[in-house]
Design a protein around this nucleic acid. Structure first.
Lengths: 231, 231
DNA sequence: TCAAAAGTGTTTTATTTACACCCATGG
DNA sequence: CCATGGGTGTAAATAAAACACTTTTGA
């Protein structure tokens, strides 16, 4: 932490990879269309420069609010990207975050900084500004591994969800078939789901009972050394 | 990534939590004594400001070289600490790294930036500058969990090591007793250790055969979907 | 009555845990 | 011959994997 001869000239930014999930569709990522140079008109991760008197976490939250009107239900630091040349204008070090929201609770709104905010399926991403594609690659890797040892997937589902939504979510994210019976047995064995008296009414087939995730109980178990694990 | 009204004034630094291990001693951390303000004379993590034309990884490596004459055998990004107020002078965002070395291969040297570089047992750390204690806490947590699912511990051992060194290393880092037979069985089952014809000569008791870790084989297995796991 | 999705147990296999004695060397 | 640390196997318990039919509803 000693000063070099000339004052350092590096900017600090934050960017967020926000995942959303609509049942039985691809996992989605929130992108905003840039309305300033560089990469004007190109899709990019929501994010921007950190203010001098603002914590990093607050900066991401602010940017998400400003650019898409979204407050993620789960948000954690992912990785910091700081290679020279990743921004054509000047040196920018960006602290990337990984976030999860339930899109049906969040209407997308584009404010001043972006002229559009939109969900894209991870298999239909447009060309992205900067090194944002590689940030997304790393976020996906992290999500896929993390969902297997922390119960963060519930943040992508409705407050009350049928068991099949959870099943489909895991299938979608991990990208392979899972045995329905074993999966249910495992999840149920943790006792972290509360049954509600409600029933999913939609569509064809037998209606499913709705569950909620008991976050409080998870925290308690976690303190006692419990580890959530799938697979 | 849009410019705020006034130019941003945030410095970017890197800091490294370098772990070292001497058989049957505490896990050690490399600290340097600061020879400039603030916190002059106080122990701190090696690190410093990133140069404008230098990648983050290169910056840590340079600082480690400059401050202690060390090239870590393993080095990865840990977390980025950027809360306001963590540096009394001005806003500094620091990208923390976690590194591993075998101290017996690295003579500690203090160069210009520090007047002393020294190993401290993690249970005998001095008071630390800035928020470096909390960086260490997080590094320790990461190391303890990571060593259970990636074979990074070998970086702390000699090139050729008796099995008991590995055993002691895990006991030390995880901080609990392990069953010698089960541990050996598990490690051996992966087939990642090569037996050498050498024998540990030292001290009392039956000499132990020396092993090397087969990094190449690990990489191959990893590509085929193999997961290293202990516990 | 058919299509669609929900719900549910048992058996087999693999993995993990618990546990104690003999061996090789140096002093 | 003693102290010290190295080396080894088996049985029991637990966890994971494989596997298919019945139920409920709407159309």
């Amino acid at each position: 932490m000693d000063s070099p001869k000339k004052p350092q000239d590096i900017k600090v930014a934050v960017d967020a990879v926000i995942f959303g999930y609509f049942d039985k569709k691809d996992l989605q990522i929130l992108l905003i269309k840039r309305n300033i140079e560089p990469f004007k008109g190109v899709w990019a991760l929501p994010g921007g420069l950190v203010l001098d008197d603002e914590n990093l976490d607050d900066a991401v939250k602010r940017e998400l609010q400003e650019e898409a009107g979204i407050k993620p239900d789960f948000l954690e630091q992912l990785y910091t990207f700081g290679n020279i040349g990743r921004d054509p204008r000047n040196r920018v070090v960006t602290v990337a975050y990984l976030g999860l929201v339930n899109p049906s609770y969040h209407e997308l709104l584009a404010y001043s900084d972006a002229d559009e905010a939109q969900w894209f399926g991870i298999n239909n991403l447009p060309n992205l500004a900067f090194d944002h594609q590689s940030i997304i690659d790393i976020a996906l890797k992290r999500l896929r591994s993390k969902i297997c040892y922390q119960p963060i997937g519930f943040n992508l589902l409705n407050e009350e969800f049928p068991f099949s939504d959870l099943e489909n979510l895991y299938k979608t994210i991990i990208g392979k078939e899972i045995d329905r019976r074993n999966f249910r047995k495992k999840i149920m064995s943790y006792g972290l789901l509360n049954e509600t008296d409600n029933i999913k009414k939609v569509g064809s087939g037998r209606p499913g009972r709705l569950f909620t995730f008991n976050q409080k109980k998870y925290r308690e178990l976690e303190e006692k050394g419990f580890y959530f694990e799938i697979n």
